[in-house]
Design a protein around this nucleic acid. Structure first.
Length: 806
RNA sequence: GCGGACGUGGCGGAAUGGCAGACGCGCCAGACUUAGGAUCUGGUGACUUCGGUCGUAAGAGUUCAAGUCUCUUCGUCCGCACCA
């Protein structure tokens, strides 16, 4: 008999303590065991606390982790804190508290909230990016990047957020606005630390072919890296020795190049300024373009503007004709060569420009009416008006033209990438100090490894400055140091690293988090890496995921990690929306607080609901009623204790097939992250137990084992209350029996001409051929077709019988 | 414009080419109750002359059989975007 009602508030803390005390989920350092490494993106411990989005990812991989342990793996499922970042710094400024204290408090709050949800994290391996023992190695990796020429300082226009007073990486600018505060981003020239991620563009692309990432992640990364193949061609400037180099993916269309466009900043304008007759006009245009933000430039994209360069002409190397030269801001200095050959007949932008300025449009691929509209879908096309290329298909023409130009020595093959180098400097306090000293005589001097960690000094004010200098610049005691090389007075670098630095390698630290001699021991890395399964948000696809792959590829190249790629498998969860279908936010008033949920329905029901609410990879609106529904389900699981026949260890004969089917389906569904259908199957199973009115200990055990990864506390409680032996999380994962997946007799549908007319019970081993011969003669079936002629019978074993009659 | 995902009841969503709507929410009716935001039982796509008929964004096609495959159109969401 059941002596206690189901009270999550009683049993959940009890088991959380028990698991922790007994180290049930700690990863073992026995490297002879088969390992499995599950990873979720470590949270930023914001002051707002846990969001209902966090448990979605956490529960999903908690299920995998728990299942793997039951399957006999040594599982590493770690947790840590991505704790550097702007909100903490802003909060510290507003409330006059040190960011380190804010971070400590937030972490403690977050950890407590996570623990209440019963995740099987190994808390003994926690990492915190703001801990000097951690960021010491972030700085160390930076020095390695510097040593290998991948970190460099460069004077360049960057995206500047006037509100946050901070430089942003391209990846952090969304539609011309600051990703964080939404303010419009302006351009500003600053001397910045950069990381040469572009040197890894091809490796980052190639690596994608070797890993199991969901397609949209791969597609998005490929898109972001933006490889395009083509050639660079020199166009002579008539009457000079100068040539203009352009990048093109369409050398086949060169006979249709009727003009050229340079970006307003192009160096040729200065170089040939004495021949240009409208220099003032050009300079004015360039000036205006420079002051436009990227946002304005894209806003105005429909209206092409530009100025012709008077006094200069270029020569089209395909046909020797002189063509005019223009400048326009639709040509970017930062991509390709900063100049293009314009083929208005077959490029939409060139066509717009040519139409606006009445430039000639020459068709070179047949098939469209290029005077009316650009003809760009030319894959199948044939070349016309193109000398030696006439009659060739586009693909062939590309090859012929490229070879022709290369042989003449005026072109070379070239691959371009959209990917830009990573702006790595931040003019902020709450980040890792960059371990560099600037000396008047010795230049840029990296710190010695033995000088790490370079500690973030305590400052009185964290306010960023309008001048764009880091708050650290005001700390003269800290800034002024003797040069490590010559000993003369020198200054420390005062920029700090971006938040992405610490998160680019944290998964390596988990392998050996307390190591004070290396970032992790070779042995630990060899054993644990690569991560077997990494789940995270789509919003990190072009930021964190790409950056961390870059760092890992680099560490691999210098021999510190074995595999090139850090993550074997990457999946992504959908966002949880508010009940009204909008994004959850304080201002919309639709935020669901995890603590309230745990209090109302318990952590287990909360976890079950998050997995049940819909397809894992889709955005789903929250439903408080739905959440209460999963609590009802757990109540029913609990009350099965009243019905269980504890003396029977075998499965009930009449439930054997359903239990076996459930074991198979739930096991498969968990692996495919189809948590919603796995739970639906368990609900069906429980409903069936109630319908039958009884179940055996064997039936109950199967249910509890299958449910335990999702609802660990209630399953552990029942398991131990019922005396099933040991801790449920240390049991073996159940296996289904192939012999009991189908009942001996199954119901099939009988169709006449495709319409269902009857149901029929047949033996499950009836073959297709036997069914087609015998079933039409069965009395119930024969009756249906009486008086009509049977043309054909189709039997799909175990499914249906379709009779075609006339 | 490019890339990706998708369109199924009142709602979230299930369906290896084989009985559309599993499971849950909500709703309706009943039982037990002083009571019900508890629990249990039954019902719940639409239309219906109660025989059936129609139903997966729209249209066509392939097939004995299409939510699923092919083509066209419409629509939604996400990412990227003067990238030559």
């Amino acid at each position: 008999m059941l002596n206690q009602p189901y009270e999550p508030s009683r049993i959940e803390p009890k088991w959380q303590e028990y698991w922790e005390k007994n180290q049930v989920f700690a990863a073992k350092s026995d490297y002879s065991l088969p390992k499995y490494y599950c990873l979720i993106e470590f949270p930023y411990p914001s002051g707002a606390g846990l969001h209902v989005g966090h448990p979605r990812s956490n529960t999903a991989l908690d299920i995998i982790s728990r299942k793997r342990r039951m399957e006999g793996c040594n599982v590493l499922y770690p947790i840590g804190w991505d704790a550097f970042g702007l909100p903490t710094e802003n909060y510290a400024i507003a409330h006059h508290v040190p960011p380190a204290k804010v971070t400590r408090d937030n972490i403690n709050h977050f950890r407590e909230q996570l623990k209440r949800l019963g995740f099987s994290f190994d808390y003994s391996r926690e990492v915190d990016t703001t801990d000097p023992e951690y960021y010491r190695w972030t700085q160390w990796i930076f020095l390695k990047l510097y040593e290998h020429g991948l970190a460099y300082k460069s004077e360049m226009p960057i995206n500047w957020c006037p509100n946050c007073k901070i430089g942003l990486a391209n990846e952090e600018v969304v539609a011309g606005n600051c990703e964080r505060c939404g303010n419009e981003v302006t351009r500003r020239v600053k001397n910045q630390w950069m990381l040469a991620i572009t040197k890894y563009a091809q490796k980052l692309l190639d690596g994608l072919d070797t890993v199991d990432f969901i397609d949209r992640v791969k597609a998005q990364q490929r898109n972001w890296i933006g490889r395009s193949e083509g050639c660079e061609v020199d166009f002579q400037v008539a009457g000079t020795k100068e040539a203009i180099r352009v990048f093109t993916t369409r050398p086949d269309t060169m006979f249709g190049a009727t003009y050229m466009v340079l970006s307003p900043e192009h160096h040729l304008i200065d170089k040939l300024s004495d021949k240009i007759t409208n220099l003032t006009e050009l300079r004015e245009y360039a000036d205006k373009a420079a002051h436009k933000s990227d946002f304005e430039r894209t806003e105005l994209q429909k209206d092409k503007t530009g100025v012709e360069i008077q006094g200069l002409k270029a020569i089209n190397p395909a046909n020797g004709k002189e063509i005019p030269l223009w400048i326009s801001d639709y040509v970017l200095m930062g991509y390709g060569t900063g100049a293009i050959m314009a083929v208005p007949a077959h490029d939409g932008r060139d066509w717009d420009f040519a139409t606006a300025f009445k430039l000639p449009i020459i068709e070179v691929v047949a098939g469209g009416d290029v005077q009316k509209a650009p003809y760009t879908e030319t894959e199948e096309g044939v070349l016309v008006n193109s000398g030696l290329l006439n009659g060739l298909h586009v693909d062939e023409a590309k090859r012929v033209m490229t070879d022709h130009l290369v042989q003449r020595g005026i072109a070379e093959y070239k691959v371009n990438y959209k990917l830009r180098d990573w702006v790595f400097s931040r003019q902020r306090y709450w980040g890792e100090p960059i371990p560099i000293v600037h000396c008047k005589d010795c230049g840029v001097v990296p710190l010695q490894e033995s000088d790490l960690p370079l500690l973030l000094p305590e400052v009185e004010s964290y306010e960023p400055t309008d001048s764009g200098e880091s708050p650290l610049a005001k700390m003269t005691d800290w800034v002024n140091v003797p040069c490590p090389v010559c000993g003369k007075p020198a200054q420390r670098e005062t920029d700090t690293m971006p938040q992405w630095a610490g998160s680019s390698w944290y998964f390596l630290r988990y392998a050996d988090p307390h190591n004070d001699r290396e970032f992790a021991s070779q042995e630990a890395l060899d054993y644990w890496l690569p991560v077997d399964w990494y789940n995270g948000g789509m919003e990190h696809t072009t930021l964190h995921l790409l950056y961390s792959r870059f760092w890992h590829l680099f560490l691999h190249d210098i021999g510190l990690v074995k595999a090139p790629e850090p993550y074997r498998k990457r999946t992504s969860h959908g966002m949880i929306l508010g009940e009204n279908g909008e994004k959850m936010s304080k201002s919309r008033g639709n935020v669901i607080n995890p603590d309230d949920l745990v209090a109302e329905i318990g952590a287990d029901a909360f976890r079950v609901y998050e997995m049940f609410m819909g397809a894992f990879d889709q955005a789903i609106p929250w439903s408080m009623n739905g959440a209460r529904g999963t609590r009802r389900f757990l109540d029913r699981v609990w009350r099965l204790q009243e019905m269980v026949d504890n003396s029977q260890q075998e499965l009930s004969p009449q439930l054997r097939v359903l239990v076996n089917q459930s074991i198979k389906k739930v096991s498969d569904d968990y692996e495919k992250m189809k948590y919603n259908t796995a739970i639906a199957q368990l609900m069906t199973l429980v409903n069936e137990f109630y319908d039958k009115g009884s179940l055996t200990a064997g039936d109950y055990k199967a249910l509890l084992l299958l449910l335990s990864p999702v609802a660990p506390h209630i399953c552990e409680e029942i398991w131990q209350e019922q005396g099933f032996g040991g801790c449920i999380h240390e049991q073996a994962w159940p296996m289904h029996d192939e012999n009991y997946l189908v009942d001996d007799e199954v119901e099939i549908a009988v169709q006449i001409n495709g319409k269902i007319r009857a149901k029929l019970m047949v033996a499950n081993d009836l073959t297709k051929q036997a069914g087609e011969e015998q079933l039409p003669k069965a009395p119930q079936v024969a009756e249906l077709i009486e008086g009509r002629q049977l043309v054909k019978a189709i039997y799909v074993p175990g499914r249906l019988l379709n009779l075609i009659v006339k």
